[in-house]
Design a protein around this nucleic acid. Sequence first.
DNA 1: AAAAAAC
Length: 474
Amino acid sequence: MTSSFSNLHLAEPLARAVADMGYESMTPIQAQAIPVVLTGKDVMGAAQTGTGKTAAFSLPLLQRLMRHENASASPARHPVRALVLLPTRELADQVAQQIALYAKHTKLRSTVVFGGMDMKPQTAELKKGVEVLVATPGRLLDHIEAKNAVLNQVEYVVLDEADRMLDIGFLPDLQRILSYLPKQRTTLLFSATFSPEIKRLANSYLQDPVTIEVARPNETASTVEQRFYSVSDDDKRYAIRSILKQRDIRQAFIFSNSKLGCSRLTRALERDGLRAAALHGDKSQDERLKALEAFKAGEVDLLVCTDVAARGLDIKDVPAVFNYDVPFNAEDYVHRIGRTGRAGASGLAVTLVTSHDSRNVADIEKLTKKKIEVERCPMEDFRPPRTSRPGHGEGERRRERDGYSAAAYGHRPSRMAQRANNADPFFDKPYEPSSAAEPASWESQRAAAVKSVSPSIRPKRKIAALFKAPVASS
DNA sequence: AAAAAAC
């Protein structure tokens, strides 16, 4: 076939590194991007997750840097010539390791700097001089301001997970970093997802770019089986345990929308006797790296994480991803489920859906252009009987197992029954697929909510929250 | 509604 690395005529040290790693044929993004990057043009590249984007930009980048590689030990003779920026520390670490492998037979030097670690060893590496610098934005700015890193000779800048790097949270730092770089340079942007707005913004950073799209942007990998299960908040953890058991799955990523939720879920799963570790931004860097390593080594089965782990992390053979919470951004859904089904392997992505997630589910459907069926969750009964409460007989146990059904009891639930059952008529009702093609407007959702909620059983502040307009997004 | 990235 034409898409073999041997047809690329990479410089011998790079070809040898590729052979060392056992790579033979290129993935589509590699086959398309490598020749373009070799020309030195600006690139905007979109490809599905897990298809080898790192090699797609780093191999041709190294090849171009090799034209003037330099064996001298002086930092002045080793200016930073290529800068690779990433949105999380773990990702910077991973990409740096990969680049070091590709460059190992060349004379090119590379290093990585990110926060949460001692500055000194990073400074020492920078002072020795590196051609390729991999970094997260905050720490890089620290090094720039401390004059540890001089970027006025950068020829190539890569924004990996580019849409995240360009979003509002990162943009100020990114702008400052870019202001230290020469105007005359090559800029490469890569991601699996690009929204139209980000695409427009991205184009303002590129000169006469070549756009490479090997798949429809935002497309999910066909190797991932996607399931959406309707559950109540209280049953989420039991749902996960049921599915793990039924599918005979040992390892999985479990995504939570908040750091607190992530920690709580981890503790609860540990109490259930499962081997879980938490990974989120409130953990020390040491704990973060340990959690990741333990998961990679198979010492931990469930990596419970926030979206810090949604993008780019490449761990072999992770069979499943659970969305304990439906992500706020549909783009994050695409990235999260991209942690499984990598490099052509098969994977399972299970999203747990409650009644207040309709809108986000609709957004996912719209973004991925894939019809979503919300199914009944296949649950084994992991729910513990709550015998500690007084007055518990067969009826209560059945109710807790099957959920409260007014029909089954032939009457309307009393307020007390509702509280005892943790039933919340609006927030805890399992998700019901709506026949409406378009997501309901916020106003109509509010109207429906107000109608369905009797003020007498709702605390006042929750009602007030329902009336509060959402903050304008943009 | 949250998370991430600097101390």
